Amino acid sequence: MIELRALRKVFGETVALEEIDLSVPAGEIHGIVGRSGAGKSTLIRCLTGLESPTSGTVSINGVDLTNQSGAGLREARRSIGMVFQHVNLLDSSTALKNVAHPLKIAGVGKAERLAKARELLEFVGLGDRVDNYPSQLSGGQKQRVGIARALAAEPKVLLCDEPTSALDSTTTDQILGLIRSLRDRLGITVLIITHEMSVIREICDSVTLLADGRVAKTGKLAEVIAEPGSVLAKDLVPLPPVSIDDGASRLVEVSLAGTDLPTVLTAARNAGASAEAILAGAVETIEGRQIGRLRFSVDSVEQAKELISALKADGIYAEEAA
């Protein structure tokens, strides 16, 4: 559904994107993460045809956007719905008219576009808010209107640019639930650009990490999280901060990748580290697999090495934590 091949974008002497290869199958929810300056905004502008790549191709629903212009590009964009961090609703228009606005631009007749807008607002749970203005809506309700508006042209792909970063946690959960429901009910392909790792864990089937304009890591979510020692895995399942009072103490980080918590605890105990030595832990169940990490405190460098060696002998990934 979404295919990027050798995508490169240069602004003057600045390389914003370099050799980006990405494939997102139809019906999948894919997350793009990365720190500020990683290239996320440039990527989404290339995906929507707002920026032309310096080289490479961008294909959406089988159409190469890099070969389109004018009417062809406008038609290709109809297969793409956009949901923004700041919804940018028309303040002087009701929710109904905001959703109907893109259909009006497309030349759809008044009766038909209003009927479609009403149907979409019902679909996103705002059937009783059709006559409300943006000032009368909460942040989550505004985002729902934005999602309904993005669906007006019946797109095949929904691009969400930081859709929850301005929302509280409860509203975020509701919006993510709605996006998942849309995927399940409509079969739509979703690409989410976000800096919030919790969004990736909650809703995505797969994930790509951008760093300095390049793909640093990409893959199915459960596989990426399960990769021992992966920077992305550590960001997706973070450990709470810990402190050790004794300067001679060392921290050993143990991964649950490929095994379960009881097995790790048994192996650690056999290696001389009791459960009382665990200073921090994070465990998640994703696609039926336990994923996570534990941090043990040991008394010396020698004990850290012995513990790591013993765990690795049992097929358990461990490393000394910084």
Rank of each mutant, 00 (worst) to 15 (best):
residue 2 I to E: 06
residue 3 E to T: 13
residue 4 L to Q: 03
residue 5 R to C: 06
residue 10 V to E: 02
residue 10 V to A: 05
residue 13 E to P: 12
residue 18 E to M: 01
residue 18 E to A: 06
residue 20 I to K: 01
residue 22 L to A: 03
residue 25 P to H: 11
residue 33 V to E: 00
residue 34 G to E: 00
residue 38 A to L: 09
residue 38 A to E: 04
residue 40 K to I: 01
residue 49 G to A: 03
residue 51 E to H: 15
residue 53 P to T: 03
residue 53 P to G: 11
residue 55 S to R: 10
residue 58 V to P: 12
residue 62 G to S: 10
residue 63 V to E: 14
residue 68 Q to D: 13
residue 71 A to S: 15
residue 78 R to C: 07
residue 79 S to I: 11
residue 81 G to R: 04
residue 83 V to W: 08
residue 83 V to H: 07
residue 85 Q to N: 05
residue 85 Q to C: 09
residue 86 H to A: 13
residue 86 H to C: 08
residue 87 V to C: 05
residue 88 N to S: 14
residue 88 N to M: 12
residue 90 L to W: 00
residue 93 S to A: 12
residue 101 H to E: 14
residue 103 L to F: 05
residue 109 G to L: 04
residue 109 G to V: 11
residue 111 A to T: 13
residue 113 R to K: 05
residue 113 R to N: 03
residue 114 L to E: 15
residue 115 A to C: 06
residue 115 A to T: 08
residue 118 R to P: 06
residue 119 E to Q: 11
residue 120 L to E: 00
residue 122 E to G: 13
residue 123 F to S: 08
residue 127 G to S: 07
residue 134 P to H: 00
residue 136 Q to W: 01
residue 143 Q to N: 08
residue 144 R to M: 05
residue 145 V to H: 09
residue 145 V to E: 00
residue 151 L to E: 10
residue 154 E to Y: 08
residue 154 E to N: 13
residue 156 K to G: 15
residue 158 L to C: 14
residue 158 L to D: 14
residue 160 C to P: 12
residue 170 T to Y: 10
residue 171 T to Q: 09
residue 171 T to V: 15
residue 175 I to Y: 05
residue 179 I to G: 11
residue 180 R to L: 02
residue 180 R to I: 03
residue 181 S to N: 15
residue 182 L to I: 14
residue 182 L to D: 10
residue 183 R to S: 13
residue 184 D to Q: 15
residue 185 R to F: 04
residue 186 L to A: 07
residue 188 I to K: 05
residue 190 V to Q: 05
residue 191 L to Q: 08
residue 198 S to Q: 07
residue 199 V to I: 09
residue 202 E to N: 10
residue 207 V to I: 12
residue 207 V to R: 02
residue 208 T to F: 01
residue 209 L to P: 09
residue 209 L to F: 05
residue 209 L to C: 11
residue 212 D to N: 04
residue 214 R to K: 05
residue 217 K to C: 08
residue 222 A to R: 11
residue 222 A to D: 13
residue 223 E to L: 09
residue 223 E to G: 06
residue 224 V to Q: 11
residue 227 E to W: 04
residue 229 G to T: 02
residue 229 G to E: 00
residue 230 S to P: 14
residue 231 V to I: 12
residue 232 L to R: 00
residue 232 L to P: 03
residue 236 L to C: 04
residue 237 V to Y: 01
residue 239 L to P: 00
residue 240 P to C: 07
residue 244 I to S: 06
residue 249 S to R: 01
residue 251 L to I: 14
residue 253 E to S: 13
residue 256 L to N: 03
residue 259 T to F: 01
residue 260 D to K: 05
residue 265 L to A: 15
residue 265 L to C: 13
residue 269 R to A: 15
residue 271 A to H: 01
residue 272 G to W: 02
residue 275 A to G: 14
residue 279 L to S: 13
residue 283 V to A: 08
residue 284 E to H: 15
residue 287 E to C: 15
residue 289 R to F: 02
residue 292 G to I: 12
residue 295 R to C: 08
residue 299 D to T: 10
residue 300 S to R: 06
residue 301 V to D: 12
residue 307 L to I: 10
residue 308 I to T: 01
residue 309 S to N: 14
residue 315 G to A: 01
residue 315 G to F: 01
residue 317 Y to N: 12
residue 318 A to E: 02
